[in-house]
Write a protein that binds this DNA or RNA. Structure first.
Length: 552
RNA sequence: GGCCCGGUGGUCAAGCGGUUAAGACUCCGCCCUUUCACGGCGGCAACACGGGUUCGAGUCCCGUCCGGGUCACCA
């Protein structure tokens, strides 16, 4: 048994004797048996609100890093701030992750539910673990109780402001740092509330060199603040929990938003003091948005930009694959080239590189997202479009879901137009499932809206009714269209018309356009012949006639 | 204010001392096309500013400006 030092006396006063020993914890949470180079990453949100696209960017990188290296991606709940916690925060986060399509290998899977060997993954349940290391720090003289109230700290800041010196608990301002042991014990026994602070050995005039996977070598001043390790409630602050958890969970790569850059020296110090091997860090720039008020760029905000919430994006009907691809275009600009070269390749095969990430914040660009999404959907088979659209509709547009399921073959045929076998002519008419209702409205009598403009086309329509044959193949169908052109004054050949438009009222395109308008109510649609085949003779005839009647 | 990070077309971005400064999105033309699309071709449009270093500088250095972050018992 070692001789009692003042510090161990203090530690005994502060912490119960039956805390697990650090060695014990090391054994309980051993290094992972993973192949060389496997990355263990973590997403560690606090349940203080919903997830937005900026969070996702980080979680997505975590997932990618783990997947690419055969590692593990875990979800940890940082619920150490009970004041800010929202009801159902955990459920919301877990659901958002699921809705967005990021699978978690380990960690929190729901409220009160976890999986994995490095449990618990909820910080509020790890108090003993933190206290073990807090005790170690205290015994080594690296931590001390601070009895300053928040009012004291306010005063402290005010006088520092006055003197024009750096704010914070350090140096001569750290009033409780050198309290005599007797006084510490006395006040503890008197039941005074206290926090446990780091006795920082740092010196801000010295520099440390840290490495960031995205930014490279960084030279930062040493951290010299006596930060709070344990709050008065006994719950750790983020910094302390970060060091303890990421070490014990054997996390190798910490991906987080770059607002943490400033506390990197503190974290380096904490890992060093605790004797832990620090993880590799990647600080990613936050996603920005164009502020409609100022016209400038600003960080995407949870509170001000509800449209960037994951829930809102999913509700809008963006397929996960599209969201994923969009994020990747922001993450690595080489992604778009890779995608063009490998149109069908699964995402995890993309050689994602942290090194290629931009150090400055990207603007969230809904226009680009829309484009990416159109491309993604255009590459899908009709059966997949059907399944995904239906799943979306079931959740957000039950009426549409009913239409899609009423006659699945019909809906399938509708979605197959210009898709599937149609090589070289992918249809890019859908960026979001919510657009399906509008884009394909004319396939459903309930949604179809006739165009009043058909009025002026009654001549064409009546002529077309005579030649329309539902069973025509595509060539015969088009021959039918052509055959009514000349008698009505339209040129059957576009080329001839362009060479000399004078004698004509228009060309074959105008004639088929009139039919299109009557049958679909639209000027732009996929292949008209295919549409008419799907609609069937009865419906086509009805609409052609209705189009004529509009004219009267 | 101290410290830190960033600044290439409207947007996302290649570029790493010598390039006509890629590419993608948007917008605009043209072409192709048996309709609508898809596609193809072309166009508009950028190295924040000032000093160095160098034969030569988006590219290296210094300063200025601008944007962001951080300085909590929030994460």
């Amino acid at each position: 048994m070692m001789e009692k030092t003042p510090y161990s006396v203090l530690a005994d006063e502060l912490f119960p004797a039956d805390l697990p020993a650090p060695e014990q914890l090391e054994r309980t949470y051993p290094p992972r048996a993973l192949p060389e180079g496997a990355a263990v990453t973590r997403f560690a949100p606090s349940p203080t609100g919903y997830l937005h696209i900026g969070h996702l960017l980080g979680a997505f990188v975590d997932r990618l890093l783990a997947s690419q290296s055969g590692g593990v991606f875990l979800l940890r709940m940082e619920d150490t701030d009970k004041k800010r916690e929202v009801e159902d925060g955990v459920t919301g986060l877990v659901n958002d992750m699921r809705a967005f399509g990021i699978a978690v290998d380990e960690g929190v899977t729901g409220p009160g539910e976890e999986k994995g060997e490095y449990e618990p993954y909820t910080q509020s349940q790890r108090k003993e673990i933190y206290h073990t290391y807090a005790r170690v720090m205290t015994e080594r003289g690296l931590a001390y109780p601070c009895f300053c109230s928040s009012g004291d700290l306010d005063e402290l800041r005010a006088s520092q402001e006055n003197e024009g010196v750096n704010k914070g608990y350090y140096g001569k301002w750290a009033r409780c740092r050198d309290l005599p042991l007797e006084e510490q014990i006395e006040r503890l026994r008197a039941g005074e509330p206290y926090t446990l602070r780091l006795r920082s050995p740092g010196d801000a005039s010295r520099k440390i060199v840290v490495r960031d996977l995205i930014r490279g070598k960084l030279e930062l001043p040493e951290y010299d603040m006596d930060v709070v390790l344990l709050k008065a409630s006994g719950i750790p602050t983020y910094h302390f929990a970060h060091a303890v958890d990421d070490h014990l969970m054997r996390v190798t790569h910490v991906v987080r938003s770059d607002e943490w850059l400033a506390s990197l020296p503190l974290h380096a110090q904490l890992f060093h003091l605790l004797g832990f091997q620090p993880p590799k860090y990647a600080h990613i720039a936050p996603m920005m948005k164009l502020d409609p008020e100022t016209g400038g760029k600003r960080k995407l905000s949870k509170r001000k930009d509800p449209e960037s919430a994951v829930g809102a994006l999913v509700r809008a009907g963006y397929p996960n694959a599209a969201l994923h691809e969009y994020l990747l275009t922001l993450l690595n600009s080489s992604f778009e080239d890779w995608r063009r070269a490998n149109p069908g390749a699964p995402l995890p095969e993309f050689p994602f590189s942290l090194k290629k990430m931009s150090a400055s914040g990207a603007l969230f660009d809904p226009v680009k997202l829309e484009d990416v999404s159109k491309n993604v959907i255009s590459r899908m088979r009709s059966s997949q479009v059907y399944d995904l659209a239906l799943a979306w509709a079931r959740a957000y547009d039950p009426e549409l879901a009913a239409l899609l399921t009423r006659d699945p073959d019909y809906a399938g045929a509708m979605l197959a137009i210009d898709r599937d076998g149609a090589k070289g002519k992918p249809r890019k008419d859908l960026a979001r499932w919510s657009q399906l209702r509008e884009a394909y409205a004319y396939f459903f009598d309930e949604l179809f809206e006739a165009s009043p403009k058909s009025a002026s086309n009654s001549g064409i329509l009546s002529a077309y009714i005579d030649v329309y044959r539902a069973e025509d193949d595509k060539d015969s169908w088009f021959a039918g269209i052509k055959s009514i052109c000349e008698p009505l004054g339209y040129c059957p050949e576009v080329k001839a018309y362009k060479a000399d438009p004078a004698p004509w009222k228009g060309h074959v395109g105008d004639v088929s356009g009139a039919v299109r308008l009557a049958v679909t109510g639209r000027e732009n649609t996929p292949d008209l012949w295919a549409i008419m085949r799907v609609l069937g003779e009865k419906r086509v005839l009805e609409r052609l006639k209705a189009g004529m009647e509009n004219a009267i």
